[in-house]
Amino acid sequence: MSDLLSSPAQQPITEMLDAATVQSIADDVWTSLVGDGEVLVPLPVPAPEVTVSAWVQITGRWCGAVVVTCDEATAVALTECLLRARPPAVIEQEDVDDALGELANVLGGNVKSLLPELSSLGLPQTGPIPPASRPEDLCRVDAQWRGQSLTITVQGATPAPHTERNEVPQ
């Protein structure tokens, strides 16, 4: 797995897309998937202490991940919006992981289409700690939805091995 991840010479993501492009992809995702009239406002608010993330990995000439991060309550609210037409009686953790994962997947696929051809998309993953990122290969949108912080990053993979110190949120 780690062999597939980036070589040190990978072209940084910021040379292929900018935050405005990621924001415009997110705008489309929000109006159509989250709900008509729902907007991701591109103004940062203080990040919550405890967050959940969902991400999809992109493998190709550029290797990395597209990551969505917010707090647990926001993730639940997003899930409720996605499932608004046929809400389950109780929203379970599995529903939340799945819905946040699908958001990352849809964002990821649209980001991938802006990268060099023949890249491929992994299946969504979720967890409290997203993959580590490197500031020199990172495109980041700090936004808010319904007043709560929501961050989307398109981030190059870090050279393996994945170590414990990477798991401390920055």
């Binding site: 998937l33 996605l82 499932l83 037409a85 599995e94 529903d95 799945d98 997947n105």
Partner: peptide
């Protein structure tokens, strides 16, 4: 594979 998407498309 996403149950959310199955529900969205299905509904």
């Amino acid at each position: 594979d996403s149950r959310a998407m199955r529900r969205i498309v299905g509904s």
